[in-house]
């Protein structure tokens, strides 16, 4: 933590960055919250991010945060994968930020995308065991039970879009659900509208989700919607050999193809 604060002080003093996006103590002990440190005297507010529920990379594309100037991003591995994925989608330019990677309490300064790529490559992110377990339990259900289970989960959905707001990859200035010519995805929180929203969102994130889990943590009613994107991420890796958040230059999996893509269900 001292290393982090010292580095933040150094970056701000040298004007290498104008804001350090990190964590500070929150309202609930053990649950730090985002902080945007611009003044040297505020550097001591920075704390380690364990227990934080937000993927800080979500702030990189917000105009309000971009207006503050060049950022240093205190990043866990998921946030670093996010930066790479955003770069591969041309949303972040090389050198636009300094990443302060925090892994196991150790701090590493990553000055460009190549450094972030190398760092991430050393820490392959598989699906956490807990998620694998939950997915296995759902897949073990009969198809009818799965449908009933998911409808029950979606029935709690309020359409608050906290999942969308917390997701760094959901950066469309006008989301599909906010278009009403036609209203392709219903905005209202009824069973059909909820199902369509979650399936549509999962598909729009297919091949882009880096598995940070911020969406599920943000959901006020506890819907495990990260499982939807995780299942697709696994399928995409198996079918097409690609995973989001590994390279700064990568094609979007659903906007590219190989003539040799193999499936077993098209007659």
């Amino acid at each position: 933590m001292e290393a982090l604060r010292a580095k933040a002080r150094e970056l701000l003093e040298s004007r290498t960055v104008q804001v350090v996006v990190g964590h500070e103590q929150g309202s609930v002990p053990g649950r730090p919250r985002p902080v945007f440190v611009r003044k040297i005297e505020d550097v001591d507010r920075l704390v380690a991010g364990e227990g934080g529920t937000i993927n800080l990379a979500v702030y990189l594309l917000k105009p309000e945060v971009q207006a503050l100037g060049r950022p240093a991003l205190v990043a866990d591995p998921a946030a670093l994968r996010t930066v790479l994925q955003l770069a591969s989608e041309n949303q972040i330019r090389d050198g636009a930020l300094v990443a302060l990677a925090l892994d196991d309490g150790r701090l590493t300064e990553l000055k460009d995308l190549a450094a972030i790529e190398a760092f991430v490559a050393e820490r392959p992110a598989g699906l956490p065991a807990e998620d694998q377990q939950r997915i296995a339990e759902i897949e073990a259900m009969s198809r009818e039970d799965r449908w009933t289970w998911w409808l029950e989960q979606f029935s709690r959905c309020l359409k608050c879009y906290a999942c969308r707001a917390a997701c760094p990859m959901c950066y469309c200035p006008r989301c599909v659900v906010e278009c009403n010519q036609p209203q392709w995805v219903p905005a209202a929180a009824h069973p059909r509208g909820n199902l369509e929203w979650h399936l549509c969102r999962a598909m729009h994130l297919a091949g882009r989700c880096v598995g940070c889990g911020a969406c599920a943590r943000a959901c006020p009613v506890g819907i495990p919607l990260d499982l939807l994107t995780q299942v697709l991420a696994r399928q995409i890796e198996a079918d097409f050999g690609v995973r989001a958040g590994t390279r700064a230059k990568a094609d979007y999996v659903l906007a590219s193809f190989r003539t040799t893509d193999k499936e077993d269900f098209i007659r």
Partner: peptide, 17 residues
């Protein structure tokens, strides 16, 4: 492109039952 999309979507449909 359609083929890729269907491979992914089919998985999602199956997963939600």
């Amino acid at each position: 492109h359609a083929r890729r999309r269907w491979m992914v979507f089919r998985r999602l449909l199956d997963f939600v039952g």
